[in-house]
C-alpha cells in the first residue's frame, strides 16, 4: 500500500469542509509498510489455540462433573423381620416402600421406591425392584391372575419376576439383599431400561 499521509485534522477547531480520516487525531506521520504479517498471524493463532485448549480442559471437566462423578449408591434399608416376610411372601408377594437418601448435586433428598418381596425361582426370598424394565412404571401384583402386571403397557411377569409377555425386554430386576439381626435388608439400585441384559446405572 505504500506510504500514506493523512492531512492534519486540526487539534481544536480546525474542522474543515472535508473531514479527514480521523477527525479527532492531531497528526499522523508517514505510514511504515508493515511486514511479516502472515508470520504474526500464524503465531497469534497458534498461541491462541494452545492457551485456549489449556483453558478449555478445566472448564469442560467442570461442566462434565455430574456426568463423570455419579453419586454413590443407596444405603442398606431394613425391610422388616426376615421370618415374617418369608411367611407372608410364601402366600403372595409383599409390597414394600424403600426410602433412602439420594444426593442430588448440592442437596440431599429422600427418595421412595416400591419393591416386592417374593419367592425366588430357585427358592429363598428375593426382593424385586418394582420398576418395570420397559419404561419405568411400577409393576403391581394381581393376586387373582397370579402375576405382576405393569399398568402402562401391559407387561406381564410371573410371581418370581420372570417375564411372561408384553413389551418389557426382561424380567423384574432383583436387588441385593442380606439378612442381618433377623432382618431382611435391601439395597436399592437403578437399572437401565429397554435392554435385555441387566446393567446397574446408580
Amino acid at each position: 500500500m505504500g506510504v500514506v499521509t493523512t492531512p492534519h485534522g486540526g487539534g481544536e477547531d480546525g474542522g474543515g469542509d472535508v473531514p479527514p480520516a480521523h477527525p479527532g487525531s492531531e497528526a499522523i506521520g508517514p505510514l511504515v509498510p508493515s511486514t511479516r504479517r502472515s508470520f504474526f498471524g500464524v503465531l497469534v493463532g497458534a498461541i491462541s489455540a494452545v492457551v485456549g485448549a489449556l483453558m478449555a480442559v478445566p472448564l469442560v471437566r467442570f461442566a462434565l462433573d455430574p456426568v463423570l462423578h455419579r453419586g454413590g449408591g443407596a444405603d442398606w434399608f431394613a425391610l422388616g423381620s426376615h421370618g415374617e416376610l418369608a411367611a407372608a411372601a410364601a402366600a403372595e408377594p409383599v409390597r414394600a416402600e424403600v426410602s433412602f437418601r439420594r444426593v442430588d448435586g448440592w442437596r440431599a433428598t429422600t427418595v421412595k421406591q416400591t419393591v416386592w418381596v417374593t419367592l425366588g425361582a430357585k427358592g429363598g426370598l428375593v426382593v424385586l425392584s418394582g420398576t418395570c424394565p420397559h419404561l419405568g412404571c411400577v409393576a403391581l401384583w394381581h393376586g387373582d391372575r397370579g402375576r405382576f402386571v405393569c399398568p402402562c403397557h401391559n407387561g406381564n411377569f410371573d410371581r418370581h419376576g420372570e417375564r411372561l409377555s408384553g413389551p418389557p425386554p426382561r424380567g423384574l430386576d432383583p436387588l441385593p439383599v442380606k439378612v442381618e439381626d433377623g432382618k431382611l435388608w435391601v439395597k436399592y439400585q437403578y437399572y437401565r431400561g429397554l435392554v435385555a441384559d441387566r446393567e446397574v446405572i446408580g
Binding site: H8, P23, S25, A27, L31, G41
Partner: peptide, 26 residues
Amino acid sequence: RRAGAAGPPRPAAELRQLPAETFFPG
C-alpha cells in the same frame, strides 16, 4: 477508532514527523 489512536504525547508538529505503523502486526 473514529478519533484514531492518539500516539505518544508530543506536539502535533513533531507527531507528524514520526513514522506511523498499522495496528497489525506490531
